[in-house]
Nucleic acid binder design. Structure first.
Lengths: 266, 266
DNA sequence: GTATTATTGTTACAAATTGAGACAATAATT
DNA sequence: AATTATTGTCTCAATTTGTAACAATAATAC
């Protein structure tokens, strides 16, 4: 209903909502095409780390058994990056999420009106054959890194649920969304040292072991403890804090945080 | 029948060219909006290497003193990558150009109707205020690598000329095209070892010195001769051929080519 | 012919980085 | 006080990279 209000508001686009009159909505308003740039979508691979596994958020559409990445559309006067941030805020409640665009998927065959029709139909929407969501879409794909523990994901109107799935135990995703996940992960691996990935997947203070586990989950391989520690410390990006007493029968590890650095892209 | 939105744009693909009748063209037909996906463009940073410098192709629009990257639009039923290849063939005459998508530019402010109006006007086109090229565009940016010597670039209809410009001596480019060049070059640097860049910027057979000069032009720094040679040979990607006798008063260098490799992205 | 010149290809050794293990330190628990 | 399971650091080996030396030419100059 929050969404309904939103779709009812003027967005700054100077266009009257003529076409929306064509859509007889039974329950809720469908996205009106005048508000958005046609043929253009975005999808987000939202990564989180639960301490053991790398996971992503996946939507399940109502009554269909269809799984998909969360995505959305760009308003007529809205920056592309802002549109993605807006949608992420709707799904996660978080502001200022770490976001990286990694590819734009533009094959003609990627769009599938049949799937979209089924999703809309199962949601009891009534829509014309010319409804814009049935058209071909080019999708700009982003990956996001968020702190797993701080988030209570919220599904969108069309979806039953939004849930965390381990990266190596995903359901089959619609259209080319599996390719998106694959490419997102490859990009993440390539960027792991440049972009200080851990900064966004971990709480502010963390142990060296936790940081190593994030790296291992992303790279999909075990790392040598001593070499990893030496490398991280030599990079001069970590600040050491007090020890963490966990009540375990061994030496307590130090807590670290990432140094506040100015003017460096993370 | 497909529906139209407020811009008069058709959102489907198989439409007659109704709207083009609105455009009274004095000389040539302007691109008709029904043929292309609205609001979506692409731009290409086309790299070549002349033996000394890294260069890119830049268009100059007729009578305006405005310089821009070559670009184009995606047909309603055309794959994004194919559209870029098609446009590159038009500019360079080459098929199967090495192409890499690197970023999609989607800021609202990047579009500039004033500039586009001026370009169209200086070309003696007559067009309505609602002409689709004056709308906001999201642009997917690619870089291409081509063999400098094999190409005779051809300007498009709106442009006076298309010419090679050294990467560090470019004219001021319109809109965000300078950002595109900058990001293309950064991506090229990052990819230089992974993607065997030289394969596409050099003739089939080349000396180690030429290969080193390509690397130096891309990275913008001098490399150590012996280290470079050792690294390249150890990568096991080069095939050694006959010596090249240049008529110079010193030892003749070997010619090399890249090994034919299957199933590896270059 | 022979000496000269400007590279080129390779080797040798030093310096730096990384791999692999050893070992002492230390929070609980027994 | 002994035991246990890490953690932080150090040591030495293995590998990679930086740097320079050097022999091998393909022309040209004499």
């Amino acid at each position: 209903m929050r969404q309904k209000d939103q779709y009812g508001q003027n967005t700054g686009s100077k266009l009257p909502y003529e076409t929306s009159l064509l859509i007889k909505d039974k329950k809720k308003k469908l996205p009106a095409q005048e508000e958005f740039i046609p043929h253009l979508a975005f999808d987000s691979v939202i990564f989180g780390f639960n301490g053991k596994q790398l996971k992503i958020l996946v939507l399940e559409y109502h009554n269909t058994g269809l799984f998909a990445l969360p995505g959305g559309f760009v308003k007529r006067d809205e920056n592309l990056d802002d549109a993605v941030q807006r949608s992420l805020k709707e799904r996660t409640g978080l502001d200022n999420i770490y976001l990286e665009q990694f590819h734009t998927f533009g094959n003609n065959a990627r769009s599938n009106a049949t799937i979209m029709r089924r999703i809309l139909a199962e949601n009891d929407y009534d829509f014309p054959d010319t409804y814009w969501l049935l058209d071909r879409f080019i999708s700009v794909a982003y990956y996001a890194l968020i702190n797993y523990d701080e988030v209570a994901p919220r599904a969108d109107e069309l979806s039953d649920s939004i849930n965390w799935y381990a990266i190596n135990d995903l359901p089959t995703l619609i259209m080319d969304h599996s390719d998106m996940v694959k490419m997102a992960l490859e990009t993440l691996k390539r960027n792991i040292d440049k972009k200080l990935i851990g900064m966004n997947l971990l709480p502010p203070k963390f142990t060296m072991k936790q940081l190593k586990e994030v790296y291992e989950a992303i790279l999909g391989e075990k790392l040598r403890r001593t070499t990893f520690q030496r490398k991280m410390l030599s990079m001069d990006i970590l600040e050491r804090h007090e020890k963490l007493f966990q009540g375990t029968a061994h030496k307590a590890p130090y807590l670290y945080s990432f140094k506040k650095i100015k003017n460096v892209d993370r």
